[in-house]
C-alpha cells in the first residue's frame, strides 16, 4: 500500500509515452542526420560490455563511488555515461535497440537500479517498435518482473527509484499490452 500508482496516473503515463513515441518518429530522421560530438563513440551492436559502459558510465560499471572531481568542471560522459540523446538513439536500428535492452536488463538482474539505467530503459522502450518481436516481448516481461522484485524491497515510498520502477512496470504492462503484469490499484 502506498507504493502502487493510481489507475489515473498509469493512464496518464501511457498517453504521455504514446505522444513521446509519435514525436520520436517525427524527429528521428532529423536527429539521425546530425553530427555526433567527437567524444561520442557508439559501441558495436554485439559489444555488451561496451554498451553497459557507454550507457551507465565507468563509475557505475566499475561500481566506484561517485567522487567529486574538482579539477574537471565539465561533465565527463565517459565516467557518468552518455544520456539517451536523440542524436544517439535515432541511429540505433531495432536489432541494436533490442540488444542494448537485453544488456541493460542483464545488468539490472544483478545490480542496483540507478537513474542512468532508468533513463536508458525508458528511451529504449520508446524506440521499440510494435508489434513486438518474440525476443523483445520476453525481454520486457523480464524487465517488469525485475522491477516488481526490486520494488518489494524498497523501504521508502518517497524514493525517486520507486516512481521510476512504477513507470517502467506501467509502460510494459499497459502500453505494450502485458496486462497480467499491471498494477491494479
Amino acid at each position: 500500500e502506498g507504493y502502487c500508482p493510481t489507475l489515473k496516473w498509469q493512464q496518464q503515463q501511457v498517453a504521455n509515452f504514446s505522444a513521446v513515441r509519435q514525436s520520436l518518429a517525427k524527429h528521428r530522421n532529423h536527429w539521425r542526420s546530425q553530427h555526433l560530438d567527437s567524444n561520442v563513440s557508439m559501441p558495436k551492436s554485439e559489444d555488451e560490455e561496451g554498451w553497459k559502459k557507454f550507457c551507465l558510465g565507468e563509475r557505475v560499471y566499475s561500481e566506484l563511488d561517485a567522487v567529486s572531481d574538482n579539477e574537471n568542471l565539465g561533465v565527463d560522459y565517459i565516467k557518468v555515461g552518455f544520456p539517451p540523446l536523440l542524436s544517439i538513439v535515432s541511429r540505433m536500428n531495432q536489432a541494436t535497440v533490442t540488444s542494448v535492452l537485453e544488456y541493460l536488463i542483464n545488468w539490472f538482474g544483478e545490480k542496483k537500479f540507478t537513474p542512468e539505467l532508468g533513463r536508458w530503459l525508458y528511451a529504449l522502450l520508446a524506440c521499440l517498435e510494435k508489434p513486438l518481436l518474440p525476443e523483445a516481448h520476453s525481454l520486457i516481461r523480464q524487465l517488469a518482473r525485475r522491477c516488481s522484485e526490486v520494488r518489494v524491497l524498497e523501504e521508502n515510498k518517497n524514493e525517486e527509484r520507486l516512481s521510476a520502477l512504477n513507470l517502467i512496470i506501467c509502460l510494459v504492462s499497459r502500453y505494450f499490452d502485458q496486462r497480467d503484469l499491471a498494477d491494479e490499484p
Binding site: K26, R119, Y122
Partner: peptide
Amino acid sequence: QSDASDVWDDTALVKAYDKAVASFKNA
C-alpha cells in the same frame, strides 16, 4: 506539448523520463 520544437531538442527523451518520474512523487 511534446510537438513543440523547443521541447524536442537532443535531450527530449531524458526530459520526458524525468518529468514522468517527478509526476509520481507529486501525484
